[in-house]
């Protein structure tokens, strides 16, 4: 008898022998036939990772990426039938891979790519116009709380993640220079985009996300061009609710 535990064991382990009881039409064991399933599982997972992490694929090159992704897939098969969730811990895997220690920014790029995917599938919201805030009385503006859209995702890094990400997908863009960069992923209608944030803007956005009032958020992030950030948030439709 072949249990599914037996059948599954060899799918993710190329060195495991073929389970017993699996044959061709004449009752003869045929490892190559079992190998079709083993190949389907691995290749489909590696393909899914390649689709989900195009910048990592570009930075590592096809051969390296697929070898690495095969390794990851065998050790970390999906934990849900929703393939859109697959690779949530790929960034962590990259961080723990010794052979990639010379590319310390890779995990943050992977996190950015997963963030873009999460934003793509995030819940819709009702974008508020800037005028909704500006039409309030001045003291109400100070006390207003701005709720960010579910598709807005903040990423902070000590690496120039915006420039590396852009360069990985389009090598005609300028070569990244050493700098810490913060990104806010925003989805205007359907397509998430990474927006490079000015210095300290992340602190302001974090404060908003934590439910602080506008004046508290401003206090939280001195030396920030609040006007520019608010313009970005409203023009990209990233404010889901204004409460006073």
């Amino acid at each position: 008898m072949t249990t599914q535990t037996d059948f599954r064991a060899g799918l993710l382990n190329p060195d495991a022998p073929m389970p017993e009881g699996l044959t061709n039409a004449h009752g003869v064991p045929s490892p190559k036939r079992y190998g079709v399933y083993r190949n389907n599982v691995t290749v489909s997972l590696v393909d899914a990772l390649q689709t989900g992490f195009p910048a990592i694929h570009s930075l590592l090159g096809d051969q390296n990426f697929r070898a690495l992704a095969t390794h990851y897939a065998r050790a970390n098969p999906p934990q849900s039938p929703l393939m859109m969730l697959y690779g949530a811990d790929f960034a962590q895997f990259l961080a723990q891979t010794q052979a990639l220690a010379h590319l310390p920014y890779l995990p943050d790029i992977a996190a950015l790519e997963y963030g873009l995917r999460s934003s793509y599938h995030a819940a819709n919201h009702d974008p508020q116009p800037f005028s909704a805030l500006l039409s309030l009385a001045p003291e109400q503006i100070d006390d207003a709380k701005l709720a960010l859209a579910p598709s807005a995702i903040l990423m902070q890094s000590v690496w120039p993640i915006h420039d590396i990400y852009t360069f990985a997908l389009d090598p005609t863009t300028p070569q990244p220079q050493a700098a810490a960069q913060d990104i806010l992923i925003l989805r205007k209608e359907f397509d998430p985009k990474p927006h490079l944030l000015p210095a300290n803007a992340a602190k302001f956005i974090r404060a908003l996300g934590a439910g602080k009032t506008l004046s508290q958020a401003i206090e939280n992030a001195p030396d920030t061009d609040v006007g520019a950030i608010l313009t970005l948030l409203f023009t990209e439709g990233a404010i889901a609710r204004i409460t006073v």
Binding site: Y37, N40, S44, L45, P77, P81, M83
Partner: peptide, 17 residues
């Protein structure tokens, strides 16, 4: 077919007796 084993999802349609 089957495609999950415990919490694990194998992303393929696997055969059964």
């Amino acid at each position: 077919a089957w495609s999950s084993h415990g919490a694990e999802y194998l992303n393929d349609l696997l055969p059964l007796p």
